[in-house]
Design a protein around this nucleic acid. Structure first.
Length: 277
DNA sequence: CGGCAAACCTGCGAGC
DNA sequence: TGCTCGCAGGTTTGCC
């Protein structure tokens, strides 16, 4: 799924339906996703008020007050949708795993074919373990060229791999890393520590730009991602390199310069070896 | 610590 | 039609 723009799109779509409501019922159609919901999950959520929804990297959560939270992660194939009507047992779709019924009579339905996502009740969101080692929010002022340069300057690993490391910068995944490196003409295979401060400035700017544009487009819809209202994101139509192996590099102005697919860290990287140095 | 492979799952498209 | 294979937006674990 779901990299930062898809998570943010989901959060923004759910917000008007969930903010200020309270949870009247929790229905679980299985007892675990990637992680177990937890033995007391239903009791911990029933009757609780949802103050608002927050996001950090690819995680988002319902703020239940007093630092308590319903933490959510979409994994690779998770999505939410809203239903206005109470659903009968035979009306659920395949892979509808968790349903929250709210005081506004809306049902918030989590669907996740691969079940790499999760929902957890968290007592103290400030001490949630994944957040403690998470790098800066890329769209905040905490992320900049100098910050990125410092984070990378000892890393021998390829810049592509380093940017996927959520402790360097949070929220990036395979698509937006490929796109940001293409925009800045940086070869994804270069050791991270070889990037100059100027390159890190350009890269941090490109990361912000590509994420902001993707959020405006409602995220990217490959197979699974859809917005809460069922609309599909359309940023995939603006990809320069992702999933474009064999197609001409648009920036090279030479039809024989083709986008290549290589494997780094077991995952596909798309880039133009002529354009990116 | 670094680097890499495998694990967790289902679905889809390509090729035979 | 149906089989197998490889691939998919993420994260964690375990091994060398």
């Amino acid at each position: 799924m779901p990299e930062l723009p898809e998570v943010e799109t989901t959060r923004l779509g759910l917000l008007p339906h969930m903010q200020g409501q309270h949870i009247q019922n929790v229905l679980l159609r299985r007892d675990n996703l990637r992680l177990p919901f937890g033995k007391d999950f239903k009791a911990q959520l029933n009757g609780r008020d949802i103050k608002t929804l927050h996001r950090r990297g690819k995680y988002f959560w319902a703020d239940l007050g007093n630092q308590n939270a319903l933490m959510m992660h979409l994994g690779m194939s998770g999505s939410f949708r809203i239903e206005d009507q109470r659903m009968k047992a035979d009306e659920y779709q395949k892979h509808d795993h968790a349903i929250l019924s709210l005081s506004n009579d809306k049902q918030i339905i989590y669907n996740d074919p691969r079940r790499f996502g999760f929902m957890l009740y968290i007592e103290d969101v400030e001490r949630y373990e994944p957040f403690l080692r998470m790098g800066p929010e890329p769209l905040s002022n905490h992320f900049s060229g100098p910050v990125l340069h410092t984070a990378l300057h000892k890393k021998n690993t390829a810049i592509k791999i380093a940017l996927l490391d959520q402790s360097v910068v949070s929220g990036l995944g395979n698509i937006y890393v490929c796109e940001a490196l293409y925009i800045t003409r940086i070869d994804p295979r270069r050791p991270a520590k070889t990037l100059s401060l100027e390159e890190c400035e350009a890269l941090s700017t490109a990361i912000k730009q590509v994420l902001e544009r993707a959020i405006k487009a409602g995220g990217s819809t490959l197979k699974d991602h859809q917005q809460v209202d069922g609309e599909l994101g359309y940023f995939q139509h603006q990809f320069n390199v992702y999933d474009r192996a064999g197609q001409p590099c648009q920036a090279c102005n030479n039809p024989s310069h083709l986008i290549e697919r290589i494997v780094q860290g077991g995952r596909s990287t798309f880039f133009c070896p002529k354009h990116q140095k």
